[in-house]
Simulated scan of single mutants.
Amino acid sequence: MKRLTLVRHGKSSWKHDLPDDERPLKKRAYRDGDIVSRTYKEFYTPDALFWSSPAVRALETAKMFKEQLGVPDENFKIKESLYTFDQEDLLKIIKSCDDSIKKLVVFGHNPAMTGLVNRLGDKGLDNLPTTGLCVIDFEVDSWKDIKKGKTLLTLIPKELR
């Protein structure tokens, strides 16, 4: 069995004239990150591998979860290729995960995240909002074989406030 958790980065600021990948998080993103990661902590098991986009807004979101969940450094990786908005690219990256890994948590960007939640899970969403999280289980032994799984958990910050 494989368990995939998709987390969209926190709400980012457009206040400063910065390249897209350097945009920081807004204050709301820290509040949302805290409430979603604390709620997810009740569901999370500590053997997951964390992958994050290198974009500031995704990496800062991932670091909030890392701290809240006590993820060891060796289970936390920044993957340049996760700075993508394309669900096909995102799926290809996820399918490249080593099969010894049973649980993968990915921090990335829309529309790729919402697209994959709908493509891979059995419960559709109009939009995975910023700091939204979705957990999907697959009855397969290889990441290469993930297709349609069972959506176990969806956390939406607005519903937790």
Rank of each mutant, 00 (worst) to 15 (best):
I94N: 01
D86P: 02
N75G: 05
D141E: 15
V135D: 00
R57H: 09
D98Y: 10
V56T: 15
T39P: 11
N110Y: 06
E60F: 07
G121F: 00
N110G: 07
L82K: 02
A58H: 05
P46K: 14
E42G: 07
F50D: 02
K123V: 06
I136F: 00
V140Y: 02
P54M: 09
Y83V: 03
D47E: 12
C134E: 01
K102D: 05
E80I: 13
Y83N: 08
K102S: 13
T84L: 09
T114Q: 01
R57I: 04
F85D: 06
F138L: 06
N75T: 08
R38T: 12
K103N: 05
L59G: 09
W51Q: 09
Q87G: 10
K41I: 04
E88S: 05
L133K: 04
E74D: 14
Y40D: 08
T39L: 12
Y44K: 04
S52N: 06
I101W: 02
G108N: 06
E67R: 14
N127A: 08
T61A: 10
R57G: 11
K92T: 13
H109D: 10
L69V: 09
V71N: 10
Q87M: 10
C134V: 15
V106C: 01
R38F: 02
A58M: 06
G70L: 04
K77E: 13
R57F: 03
K66L: 06
E60T: 14
P129N: 08
H109R: 10
I93S: 05
K66S: 10
P46N: 14
D141N: 15
V135C: 04
F138H: 01
P46R: 14
